[in-house]
Structure formats: structure tokens, C-alpha cells
Measured scan of single mutants.
Amino acid sequence: SLSVDNKKFWATVESSEHSFEVPIYAETLDEALELAEWQYVPAGFEVTRVRPCVAP
């Protein structure tokens, strides 16, 4: 099958004044980091952490 098993990760994104967490959907932690950097670094943010979303 061609289905992709995307998992939810939380990326911590920082600017000079703010820090916030955004959801990233990817297959692996490395891919989540790449996606977060691709989305947020060009906008002037720094991705400081990516972690798996742990269900309660």
C-alpha cells in the first residue's frame, strides 16, 4: 500500500522574543526536524527542539 504512517511531533520554534511549539507530521524524528527547519528557518525562526508527541 502507499499509505504513509505519519506521526505527530512537537517542534519548539524560537524567535528573538518568543518561543512556541508547533505540531509537525512526519514519519521519523529526522524528517520532522527537516520539515520544521524548512518551514520556519526562512521566516527567521530557530528550531531548537523536536520531540515525539506522547499520547496521554
Results as ranks from 00 to 15, higher is better:
15 S>E: 03
6 N>V: 15
11 A>D: 01
23 P>N: 03
51 R>I: 11
49 R>T: 09
28 T>F: 03
33 L>G: 03
56 P>Q: 12
6 N>W: 10
47 V>T: 02
5 D>R: 14
36 A>V: 05
32 A>N: 00
55 A>W: 10
19 S>G: 04
23 P>F: 10
27 E>P: 14
54 V>Q: 10
12 T>F: 06
28 T>M: 02
16 S>M: 09
44 G>E: 02
26 A>W: 02
35 L>C: 06
12 T>A: 03
6 N>Q: 13
23 P>T: 09
45 F>G: 03
20 F>L: 05
10 W>Q: 02
48 T>D: 02
13 V>E: 00
2 L>Q: 11
7 K>H: 09
54 V>K: 10
7 K>I: 08
45 F>W: 05
35 L>F: 07
22 V>D: 02
36 A>M: 04
50 V>A: 02
12 T>S: 05
45 F>M: 06
12 T>Q: 05
10 W>P: 01
4 V>P: 13
3 S>G: 11
43 A>D: 11
54 V>A: 09
10 W>A: 03
24 I>V: 07
23 P>V: 15
22 V>K: 02
37 E>R: 15
17 E>N: 12
22 V>E: 01
48 T>L: 05
54 V>D: 12
31 E>D: 07
41 V>F: 06
12 T>D: 02
44 G>I: 00
46 E>S: 05
9 F>E: 00
22 V>N: 02
33 L>E: 05
45 F>P: 02
55 A>Y: 10
56 P>C: 08
26 A>P: 00
22 V>G: 02
24 I>H: 01
8 K>S: 05
5 D>S: 14
32 A>P: 00
9 F>T: 00
36 A>I: 05
53 C>S: 11
7 K>F: 08
13 V>R: 00
32 A>C: 05
4 V>R: 13
31 E>V: 05
7 K>S: 05
40 Y>S: 04
49 R>H: 14
29 L>Q: 06
19 S>D: 02
18 H>C: 15
46 E>C: 06
7 K>A: 08
48 T>C: 00
28 T>A: 03
20 F>W: 08
38 W>L: 15
36 A>G: 03
19 S>A: 09
7 K>W: 08
27 E>M: 14
42 P>S: 10
56 P>I: 09
41 V>C: 05
2 L>E: 11
30 D>R: 13
13 V>H: 00
56 P>K: 08
56 P>D: 12
8 K>C: 15
9 F>C: 15
1 S>A: 12
17 E>K: 10
18 H>M: 14
35 L>D: 03
50 V>E: 01
47 V>E: 02
2 L>Y: 08
47 V>W: 01
13 V>S: 01
49 R>F: 09
38 W>K: 15
13 V>C: 05
17 E>Y: 12
42 P>V: 07
1 S>T: 10
39 Q>I: 15
27 E>S: 14
12 T>W: 07
48 T>S: 05
52 P>M: 11
15 S>V: 06
3 S>E: 08
9 F>P: 00
18 H>Y: 13
29 L>C: 15
52 P>Q: 10
20 F>M: 07
31 E>H: 11
20 F>T: 03
11 A>C: 10
29 L>S: 05
50 V>S: 01
46 E>Y: 04
18 H>E: 12
42 P>N: 09
3 S>L: 12
14 E>C: 06
10 W>T: 03
37 E>W: 12
11 A>L: 06
1 S>D: 13
52 P>V: 10
